[in-house]
Structure formats: structure tokens, C-alpha cells
Amino acid sequence: MAAGLCWSCDTKDPAPPGGNLRIEFDNVVGDKNLVLNGVSYENATGEDFVVTKFNYFVSNFRLYKTDGSVFTVPQDSCYFLVKEDNRASQFVTLKNIPTGDYDHVEFMVGVDSLRNTMPEAKRTGALDPGGDMAGDGMYWAWNSGYIFVKLEGSSSFGNPTNDKFYYHIGLYGGYDKPTVNNTRIVKIKFGDDLARVTEGHTPEVHLFADVLKFFDGPATNLSIAEYPGIMAAEVHRPYTQKIADNYKQMFSYDHIH
């Protein structure tokens, strides 16, 4: 009974004044919308490809106001898994944001090293390590750590056994010995627009994530024929950093509504 009373006291505390801001992660291939399982696209190397899976983690959001002040989304509510085959997952709602005018956002692609080494109790929701690797699983059970970006598909340049390609890019920097760190911080300015957060209005920032830029970027033009599978093997690790430099660049701003 006493416990019950305390609980209701707690819930009566007024929530801090604020609103919400929503970010849509709209996955595209160049100037086309991404369609899974069917539509064939072509990378800069000239290789055809069909995408069957495109999942990625975005986390550690920071919102910048025009006056230069920054709001950091609290740690325990800052991890989101965007999946192309799940429309709801493409809308990331940041809650209890101080009201005001924001002109850019910063976020991490991946899951930071701290969270990657936290006790199991801190790994619920999108961070549940029990995912199905043949399905949407984004956790390496054999090499403890999250997969940050998972891109799979098929191509006539895919591996000779089944024409497929598999890119599972992760690695957070190592538990007790430094490894490569493929988390990347992305900063996106909302053009000349502002996201006006009020208590009654939730602005929605529409971003693109371009699969072509995963393949072709400042760091490398990833060739499916050369690399039909990249995960965490020792031999591939230096190259995964180039892919990470590519996916850091794959996001762009479109509009706010």
C-alpha cells in the first residue's frame, strides 16, 4: 500500500516543459526510393544489385538551437534501429525536447562503446542482443558487439555460391584491446529551415539515407565482385573503416514539415 502511494506521488510530478521532434529516415538509392526485393540498381563500379535487407542503428542524438545551445537526448532513450522493411522504425521520435528553434542535428551511426559493454539489463528494446541473425539480428554473439549497418542483397557479381552479398559493419573500438571503431558521427543542417519545437507541434525532419553512398563515397567505391561479404574478419577490418566513412556521408536533409 505504501509503495503504491509513493508511486502515485511520483507520477504526479509535472513533466518538464517541452515537445517532441520526429526524424524520418527515408532510404533511397540515388534519386529513386529504395524498394526491397525486386528493383535492380547499379553502383559506381557498374555492378547491378538488388537490396533484400537494409538495417542500421542511429543513436546519441544532439539537437542544436539557433542560439548555439545544445540538447542531448538522454542516454537511455537514444538508441533506434531503422529497418527498411519496417515503416514505423523509420520514424525516430525524440521526446521531451526543450521548446525552441533547432537548425541542425547530430547523431551517431552505430552503438557507442560504453553501451556495447554495459550489463545485459541495459540492452532492452532495439538493443536486445537476442535478435535472429538470419533475420533482423544486429548483434554478434560470437564477438560481443552490435552490427551498426547491415546491407544484404543479390547481384550478378555476388558470391559464386548464391549470388548474394552481405555487409555487416560493426566494431566499436574493442573491449580491452583497441580494435577499429566504425561508429560515425553525422551532422545534418536543416538547410535554411528551422525545426520549431513547441508543446503543441512536433516538427518532422525528413532525411534521406542513400544506399548508393554506402557503396560509393569519399573513401572507396565498394565493389561487390571484390567483396561479396564483409563482416568482422581480421582481414577485412581496415576496409570496414572505409565503408564506415562512406556511410557517414550517406545522410542528407530534404525538408521539414
Partner: peptide, 21 residues
Amino acid sequence: HDLDFSPLNAIENPVELDESV
């Protein structure tokens, strides 16, 4: 590096338990 995560390895290994959580 954490006992609590160890079973996942055997569960997901396709030649061990080949199952998902």
C-alpha cells in the same frame, strides 16, 4: 567478455544450437 552474453554464441551458431532467442 560477459557471462550473461555467452549462451547467445552457442544458440546462434548454425552448427551448435542453430536457434534464435
